[in-house]
């Protein structure tokens, strides 16, 4: 049961949020996890989500936006069904991360933070994703793919296109 009337989230998510605000010493600590869950639920953090989260945490919408805009992993616009995040930080850069990124751009026909017209893929250049040992690496939604080569990327994209990739959210 949701404490917010007309919640925009699914009943499960709403229930989760109800609990979330109770488990920290201060209510506002629930802000960042709540934003992440909201993004997973809706694909991005919409204005309506901002409004409801502000209400739930009992802070101003402005406060929510201040935090939301700080983190580059939080989006305010929809991403593709599969969000491809290519690392170009030092280890990956040294092991060909930029080639992988360029390959993705070429292959998908989109640039940084763009979405393919069919809405299946979106592309992002990101900082270190903690997979340096197996660089170059990328993350598609919450799934990691490492030791990449352009060929491997092609296989991966085909796999996702065929609906065989894990759609972890």
């Amino acid at each position: 049961m949701s404490t917010i009337a007309n919640t925009i989230f699914s009943p499960e998510m709403a229930a989760r949020f109800d609990k979330l605000v109770t488990i920290y010493p201060v209510r506002r600590s629930a802000l960042v996890p709540m934003l992440l869950y909201a993004q997973d639920d809706l694909g991005y953090v919409s204005d309506a989500a901002v409004a409801e989260i502000a209400l739930r945490i009992e802070i101003l919408e402005l406060d929510v936006r201040n935090v939301l805009s700080y983190y580059s992993m939080l989006r305010t616009k929809p991403a593709g069904k599969y969000n491809v995040q290519v690392c170009t930080n030092i280890s990956c850069m040294l092991r060909g991360g930029y080639e992988i990124l360029d390959h993705c751009k070429h292959k998908l026909g989109i640039g940084h933070k763009e979405v393919t017209p069919d809405g299946v893929f979106s592309l992002e250049e990101v900082e270190c994703i903690g997979a340096c040992c197996w660089a170059p690496a990328m993350q598609i939604n919450y799934d990691f793919h490492d030791d990449l080569t352009p060929e491997k990327v092609d296989v991966l994209f085909q796999m996702y296109k065929d609906g065989q990739g894990k759609d972890v959210k």
């Binding site: 204005d47 101003l60 919408e61 402005l62 406060d63 936006r65 201040n66 805009s69 700080y70 580059s72």
Partner: peptide, 22 residues
């Protein structure tokens, strides 16, 4: 509390409480 700070690093910016899209 009508003013906040948004984004990060060299792109940080002072933002008012009614964003353009609203």
């Amino acid at each position: 509390f009508a003013l906040g700070i948004q984004n990060r690093g060299s792109s940080s910016v002072i933002a008012p409480n009614v964003p353009a899209q609203m």
